[in-house]
Amino acid sequence: QDSKAQITALHLIIGTLQRMNIFGVENRDTLTHKTTGYSAKLLKKPDQCRAVYACSHLFWTDDQDGIMDGERVLLCLKRALRIANAAQQMANVSKGSSGSVILFIEILNKYLYFFEKGIPQITNTVIQDLIELIRTEKQNDSSASDPSAEAFFASTLRYIEFQKQKGGSIGEKYEQIKAS
């Protein structure tokens, strides 16, 4: 019960920090670092992963102040991937426990979001590597495949194909990504 309250509180803090611009650079920096740190200390790995990738939004905002720190966004996403990988390893060790491929797919969607925002550190190569990682994890997952994860991944790949077909600058960005 307490861990659910912590998760809710962290997500509220992340959302609030994302929209507030009254702190000044130093104070905001301290608050975002503390929030990211606490996110990585949640009890369960999937909760840690989701909170850490949510923190990536603290480093890239579309408001008038425009915090645009692509390096820190990428650090959050990489950290979330490491946590998802640790969750996957733990699931592989404990039999009957389903893998966390879904976490990788959620992170892929965050990468796509920031890719479209034009963060230079999020390249089509990084996205392609993540797609391949998910495919490998799905093959290595000894448990029966998760239909919701399958549907989520298929939907994400369809989205990539849809973006390619749009043409123009968006289509061009996505052209190098092989989703099918």
Rank of each mutant, 00 (worst) to 15 (best):
A5V: 13
Q6F: 01
Q6P: 05
T8A: 09
L12M: 09
I13T: 09
I14L: 00
G15L: 11
T16R: 10
M20Y: 01
G24C: 08
E26W: 09
D29Y: 11
T30Q: 05
H33A: 06
K34I: 12
T35R: 13
T36V: 08
Y38V: 03
L43H: 14
K44L: 12
P46F: 03
Q48D: 02
R50Q: 09
A51P: 12
V52I: 07
Y53K: 15
A54K: 13
C55L: 02
C55N: 07
S56R: 08
L58S: 05
F59H: 13
T61E: 02
Q64N: 07
M68W: 14
M68E: 14
G70I: 11
E71G: 10
L75V: 03
R79G: 14
R79V: 10
L81R: 10
L81Q: 15
I83P: 14
A84L: 06
N85S: 11
A86Y: 12
A87S: 11
A91W: 03
S94P: 04
S94T: 12
K95H: 05
G96S: 05
S98C: 00
S100R: 13
S100M: 13
I102K: 09
L103F: 02
E106I: 12
L108T: 14
N109F: 00
K110E: 12
L112F: 01
K117C: 04
I119M: 00
Q128D: 06
I131N: 11
E132H: 13
L133R: 11
I134A: 00
K138Y: 01
N140I: 01
N140C: 02
A144K: 09
A144G: 12
A144C: 04
D146K: 05
D146T: 05
A149E: 14
A154C: 01
T156N: 10
F162C: 11
Q163C: 13
Q163F: 00
G168W: 09
S169P: 02
G171E: 09
E172W: 13
K173S: 14
Y174C: 03
Y174D: 02
I177D: 06
I177Q: 10
